[in-house]
Design a protein around this nucleic acid. Structure first.
Lengths: 112, 112
DNA sequence: GCCACTTCCCTAATCATCTTAGGGAAACAA
DNA sequence: TTGTTTCCCTAAGATGATTAGGGAAGTGGC
């Protein structure tokens, strides 16, 4: 496989973001993330489904059984209002962390 | 405390980077990272010392007992040649991941 | 009809890594 | 001599991923 593993701690953010683009079933979330990241982000099913269950239990997504484009039984997930709130929190938190990391990683001299 | 927790998986990179700025002891690595990130990145000692041990066992850093600026017994760590190699690998890998994350997080519409 | 393949769902065991929560020693200040 | 800071370290627990299964239902080739 080409892609890298994701960073632990970013899975919920990625799923919420994927679902925010429109209702999607689990398997579709994987493909959607794969496409959007040009194959860089590969998520394992063993991580995905428990995460979806966890997000639903927290009321951040809601699910509904339906039928996929390929005529398969599929559980579609959609973002809730609470999910939108959490998504923007996680986005902000991600940006802060990346900014902090960049400050460290760019530094060339010591400030003591 | 103000700072956020770091992302799991980024600790080795942060430590290698900190040590690459000049030999430092464990406690000093914590302060150095705190300063460089303006307090955003807080690393726990319980995570730091095992990580330093692990890095040394892999030959990425080498250590030497000495005396700190505050006249305390301290073990100073310095980056090895292998450590420099690993650091640049981890840097590249980090950049790739951030780039992939940004592609996903910035997307506003579906490309199917 | 039958078989292989794909799409979709799910769970259990394991592993890696971090937090929490300790403990200890030596220097310095009050 | 007591408390605080600086430094080191380890063990237990939690978290969150990977690995490794299994199952069912549609589709296509033969």
């Amino acid at each position: 496989m080409s892609g890298a593993q994701i960073l632990p701690g970013t899975l919920d953010l990625l799923i919420l973001k994927a679902v925010s683009l429109g209702p999607e079933h689990g398997y579709g979330v994987l493909q959607r993330l794969g496409q959007l990241s040009k194959g860089e982000l590969q998520i394992e099913q063993g991580a995905l489904y428990p995460a979806l269950y966890r997000l639903e239990k927290q009321g951040l997504v809601r699910s509904e059984w339906g039928s996929s484009e390929n005529n398969r039984r599929a559980k579609f997930y959609a973002l809730t209002a609470a999910g939108r709130g959490r998504l923007s929190e996680e986005l902000a938190s991600w940006e802060r962390l990346v900014e902090a990391m960049e400050q460290v990683l760019r530094s060339k001299a010591l400030a003591r």
